[in-house]
Simulated assay, not measured.
Amino acid sequence: MDCDEFVELVTDFLEGALPEADEARFITHLAECSGCETYLEQFRQTIDTLGELPPESLSGEARERLLTAFRGFRRGQ
Rank of each mutant, 00 (worst) to 15 (best):
M1W: 02
D2E: 08
D4Y: 02
E5I: 09
F6S: 01
V7I: 15
E8P: 01
T11E: 14
T11R: 09
D12T: 04
D12I: 02
F13T: 05
L14F: 09
L14M: 15
L14A: 04
L14W: 07
L14P: 03
E15Y: 10
A17S: 14
A17G: 10
L18E: 00
E20R: 10
A21G: 04
D22S: 07
D22M: 06
E23F: 00
E23V: 09
R25A: 12
F26A: 02
F26W: 03
I27V: 13
I27C: 05
T28S: 14
T28V: 11
H29E: 00
L30I: 07
L30W: 03
L30V: 08
A31E: 10
A31C: 08
E32L: 08
E32G: 09
E32D: 11
E32M: 11
C33D: 01
S34G: 04
C36T: 04
E37G: 14
E37I: 00
T38P: 01
L40W: 00
L40Y: 00
E41F: 06
Q42L: 15
Q42K: 13
R44L: 12
Q45G: 06
T46V: 09
I47Y: 09
I47V: 12
I47E: 08
D48Q: 15
L50Q: 13
G51E: 07
G51W: 03
E52S: 08
L53W: 05
L53G: 05
P54W: 01
P54D: 07
L58P: 01
S59K: 11
G60W: 00
E61A: 15
A62P: 03
E64P: 04
R65P: 01
R65E: 15
L66T: 07
L66C: 09
L67A: 14
L67V: 09
A69M: 11
R71W: 01
G72W: 03
G72H: 12
F73C: 04
F73V: 06
R74A: 09
R75T: 13
G76V: 07
Q77Y: 04
